[in-house]
Structures are given as structure tokens and as C-alpha cells.
Simulated assay, not measured.
Amino acid sequence: MAWIVLGFDGTDAEAPARRAAARERHLGAIGAMAADGRLALGVPLLEPDGRVAGSLMVLSGDEPAALEAYLAEEPFAREGVWTRVDSMPGRIAPLPYRRLPGPSGEPPPRRTHTVILAMDGTDEGAPARRQAARPAHLERMRPAATEGVLTLGCAVLDVPGGQMIGSVVVTAHETDAAARAFWEQDPYVREGVWRDLRIWGTRIAPLPYRPLPGSSG
């Protein structure tokens, strides 16, 4: 199980300076969390113009205490970098992911990946559409994970351990257009499961991450 945290920076003129001032403390905190298994993935959310809009953090463990402990330690939350935090329970799909960049790697200088938050419809037929499309979706995601196209796939749940109502996915696409072209072929898009999509660029900093569920190590 997991918690999905979307932290959004302010839009005022001082927002970039607040992030820059807290960045080293943030990297130190999430590095320790990655090493002890509490953080599955943490990445920035980049707007098309390159501006940092916020962060996506995927925490291991679905207990509310895990979320509360993370936010109490996170410098971006404590020091006012994030002016809004949205949190959702989730479940990381166990797929044959490639290992995330380790601590000996170099930070990428530019966007390398894409984050998509995709929410299902809210009509009565939404759960049935997801269940009907899910086997074909997972069949497509397994080779995508093996090939390194899918970095992380996580279902959004209505409550911890509850019903799937959306997805958060991270893919190795350097542009919005490439990511959209990839997902347009997916059953969740073609069969109307996902109804509300938000997309950001991102890059993955090298941290001592543990293998994701389903990873070959």
C-alpha cells in the first residue's frame, strides 16, 4: 500500500527562492526516507516552461501515521515551500520495473520523465469500466515496465485498501506529446476509464531507493 502526496508550490514571486533555500534539507530528508523504505519515489512536477510547480511523493505504507510522520519531517511542508498538499491513499502495481537511479548517479540536468494524475469517471458505471479494461491495461504495462517506459504505476484509492478511482503513473517520456501518444493507445484511455488527466514533466534524482513492488531487483 502507499500514500500519494502532491505538494504544490506557491505562485508568488518568492516561491522559487523558498524552494531553493529548502532544497538541500529536502534532499537529505527524502534520501533517508528512501534508504529506510518509507519513500518509494519522490520527483518534482515541472510545467511546460520548466517552472517547478510542486512535487510528487509516493510513500510506502497506508497508515495515516505514515503520512503524518512524513509531512512532519518534510522541509518543503514545514518551511512553506508547498502552499497546498493533496494526499490520497494508493497501491503500487507490482510490475517488473527497472531499478530507480541509485545514490551514485548524477542528477539529470533537464526533464527526462512525465507524471500523469488520471482520475476515473465519477458516474455509476466507472468501477465496472475500470474492471473491464484492467486486464488489458496490465498486459500492456508489464512489457512497458520491463523496457523502462513505465517507471511507476500506482492506483489511487478512495480510502486505504478501498476501491480504485484513478491512477498516478510516471513514464520515461521527455515531452507531453510523447506521453499523450503513448497513453492514447492504452485501454484506460480508449475505453473511457480515465476522464480527468493532469500532466507534468519531471526528472528523477538519484537516491537510495529500495526496489519497487514486482521489481526484479
Rank of each mutant, 00 (worst) to 15 (best):
P103S: 11
S104P: 00
S104K: 10
S104W: 14
G105V: 04
E106I: 11
E106K: 13
P107F: 04
P107R: 10
P107G: 06
P107S: 07
P107A: 11
P107E: 08
P109N: 02
P109E: 11
R110K: 09
R111T: 06
T112I: 08
T112Y: 01
T114G: 08
T114F: 05
T114C: 13
V115Q: 01
V115G: 00
V115N: 03
L117Y: 11
A118D: 00
M119V: 09
D120S: 00
G121L: 00
G121I: 07
T122Q: 14
T122N: 13
T122F: 12
D123A: 08
D123F: 04
G125N: 15
G125M: 15
G125V: 15
A126K: 03
P127R: 09
P127E: 09
A128N: 06
A128F: 07
A128T: 12
A128H: 01
R130P: 00
R130E: 06
Q131M: 14
Q131G: 05
A132K: 10
A132Y: 09
A133G: 00
R134D: 00
R134T: 08
R134F: 09
R134H: 12
P135M: 04
A136I: 01
H137C: 10
H137V: 04
H137T: 09
L138K: 06
E139Y: 04
E139N: 12
R140D: 08
M141D: 09
R142G: 03
R142E: 11
R142K: 15
P143L: 09
A145N: 00
T146M: 10
T146S: 11
T146L: 14
E147I: 10
E147L: 13
G148F: 06
V149C: 06
V149T: 15
V149H: 10
V149Y: 13
L150M: 15
T151P: 04
T151L: 14
L152V: 08
L152Y: 08
G153I: 11
G153V: 03
C154R: 05
A155Y: 08
V156M: 13
V156K: 11
L157R: 05
D158H: 10
D158R: 11
V159E: 15
V159S: 12
V159L: 10
V159R: 15
V159G: 03
P160V: 05
P160Y: 04
G161S: 10
G162C: 08
Q163V: 12
Q163L: 14
Q163E: 15
M164R: 14
I165S: 02
G166N: 04
G166Q: 00
V168Q: 02
V168H: 01
V169F: 05
V169Y: 02
V170M: 02
V170K: 03
T171H: 03
T171K: 04
T171D: 07
H173G: 07
H173S: 13
E174V: 11
E174R: 14
E174T: 13
E174G: 15
T175G: 09
D176I: 08
D176H: 15
A177M: 13
A177I: 05
A178Y: 01
A178T: 09
A179W: 03
R180Q: 14
R180P: 01
A181C: 03
A181E: 13
A181G: 04
F182H: 13
F182D: 04
W183M: 09
E184C: 06
Q185C: 12
Q185A: 13
P187W: 04
P187E: 02
Y188R: 02
V189P: 01
V189S: 07
V189Y: 11
G192M: 00
G192D: 03
G192E: 01
